[in-house]
């Protein structure tokens, strides 16, 4: 159970960055998109986004919308682009390593 939480923690940053890399997103949209695929406490997203902005991986801009409050959009920066690439690489290495290990366990 604890390990599951750790997985999701690591994954949330990757998910958020991957979604922002596709196109500019606003907070609520990100929360909806992430929780479509993984079960996560959406509240954790906003502090994470703040940190991503602080570390220069994202930048924000406000956009008024006809209905509802103005949307704070997140846009990826070149550093964020590079960081995301690195995270994905690490993630895939990790996943394939774990998979190989599991396969071995099944075969033997």
């Amino acid at each position: 159970m604890d390990i599951n939480i750790q997985f999701k923690k690591g994954a949330l940053e990757l998910c958020a960055l991957a979604l922002i890399r596709q196109q500019d997103r606003y907070g609520y949209e990100l929360a909806q998109l992430v929780s479509e695929h993984i079960e996560v406490a959406e509240g954790a997203l906003y502090p994470l986004l703040r940190r991503l902005v602080k570390e220069g991986y994202c930048m924000t801009y406000l956009q008024e919308s006809s209905e509802g409050p103005p949307r704070k959009y997140y846009r990826i920066t070149p550093e964020g682009e590079a960081h995301t690439g690195w995270l994905i690489e690490e993630w895939e290495k990790f996943i394939s390593g774990v998979n190989r290990l599991i396969q071995k366990g099944i075969q033997s």
Binding site: I5, Q6, K8, K9, L12, V40, A41, G43, A44
Partner: peptide, 11 residues
């Protein structure tokens, strides 16, 4: 770097 916000009710 991460704390326990993820251990919320959803999990």
């Amino acid at each position: 770097t991460y704390s326990s916000a993820y251990s919320g009710a959803n999990f």
